[in-house]
Write a protein that binds this DNA or RNA. Structure first.
Lengths: 247, 247
DNA sequence: TTTCTATTGTGTAAAAATTACACGTAAGAT
DNA sequence: ATCTTACGTGTAATTTTTACACAATAGAAA
């Protein structure tokens, strides 16, 4: 793997045009391209996002999304997968492009256009890698002011998630392999910021036939234990292009 | 307006790396950025898209979307607005980013990442400008093989349109200022490729209160004339963040 | 061992939304 | 005068959504 385009700050940029806040990479007249990933996880009944501390001088101390420069020989999705892999060690994870952000002054090092992705993963499976810059999980509702335009990117991806979770069962990517209906309902309530009637929620979800009864019950809870379910990927592929509406 | 970055083919690129099908713009190691616009219009009861003939040697004779290189000092939306303005003379038109396309080999002149937009306009208002390259309107259903990955871009934007038209009344951007309920229904049927029961369609649309009765009827039709309606932008702004579902 | 606490699992009736469906009316064309 | 074509309208049947309560079960506490 080449090391040349690993980060924006490696190459000793030359500031030439103060007025327009641009920076020239060699003598290029091209904007630079990066990907930024909003990595969502669900833990402790709370929707979380994986962040690091920015090391941009302008944004010292602020949190920032995980991102990286796009390599010249790398597809867009591959760049996002790389970011995810470098930090979580995970591959084949739900990852989807949302929107590209390219305001002229969004980045202090010059014109950097960033393609945003969001990702959904089961937080229990992962062992964070390269934990420099204080990599860790933040509740989505408690993220304060972020570096760059990352609040906007996060908000956009969060809205996409909220919208999509109503029509496609992508939420299940956030749960462990087996889960209770309570887990599922708490997940949806955390994502959407609403609450559902328990009986109606169950009815609705069972009607999709996406859930497989594992014939097991949860252990070591001090109340009546719930049945465990897992996700039926076959059924998912059947219905994923049809209609599924939670509300 | 500067003329420097007007098109990919202006600057006399140097082909250096045959193997990876890249071309180097000066000595840049950056991908280039462009916008491509899928401009939809509704005419003669058919959904159409504005295309030109590609002048890429590899794609001679094939149709291509309208696009242009992103300028260094230009926001993404502004670049798309520029493309639209140059060809139609229109401003303040519905225009929305969909997805960014950046496969390594999508463009024969090198690594060019393209941000796709789609636009909805009333075809009657417009006087096409710069009609070189055989600029004109094609029925969406009859577009054959296109240049680059433009079939994919068109398909993506069309799907976005189909999805969005069900939950937001953006379709009205495709109609003239006053229209009949028949026009409206034909529009939705053309976009979605379905047909609706006339009475139920009317009921549903009236319930949104988006339509204002103009107290006029259409002229010179050889059947009972229909009432004319226009669109209530105030009501639209009220409900645009709430729910609206046509089906 | 009994009781307490917390959460599970289940059905039905009322309300709302969606669907299916037919006929008299009005304008221009013949 | 009549034909053709599309307009404008209401209701009943069906489906979907909503609201709502109680017995059962595990561990914890007494």
């Amino acid at each position: 793997m080449t090391k040349d385009l690993e980060s924006y700050s490696e190459e000793g940029f030359i500031r030439e045009n103060i007025q327009s806040n641009q920076i020239e990479n060699k003598i290029s007249t091209e904007p630079s391209l990066s990907v930024d990933c909003v990595i969502f996880g669900f833990d402790d009944q709370v929707l979380k996002v994986l962040l690091i501390k920015s090391d941009q001088p302008e944004f010292l101390g602020l949190w920032s999304l995980l991102g990286n420069k796009l390599k010249m020989n790398e597809d867009l999705d591959a760049a996002a997968e790389r970011v995810l892999y470098e930090r979580t060690g995970l591959e084949n994870i739900f990852l989807e492009q949302t929107k590209t952000f390219g305001s002229i002054n969004r980045h202090p090092e010059g014109r950097i256009v960033s393609i945003a992705y969001y990702s959904l993963l089961n937080i229990n499976h992962i062992q964070l890698q390269k934990t420099d810059n204080d990599l860790h999980w933040h509740p989505v509702s408690e993220v304060g002011k972020m570096a760059f335009d990352h609040n906007l990117i996060l908000e956009t991806c969060y809205q996409t998630l909220q919208k999509k979770v109503l029509t496609e069962p992508i939420g299940l990517n956030l749960l462990p392999e087996t889960f209770t209906l309570r887990d599922l309902q708490l997940l949806y309530e955390a994502i959407l910021g609403t609450s559902f009637d328990r009986r109606n929620f169950r009815k609705k979800f069972f009607s999709t036939k996406l859930l497989v009864d594992r014939n097991e019950i949860e252990k070591e809870v001090s109340h009546r234990p719930a049945k465990l379910y897992s996700f039926d990927f076959e059924q998912y592929n059947k219905i994923k292009n049809s209609r599924f509406s939670l509300v």
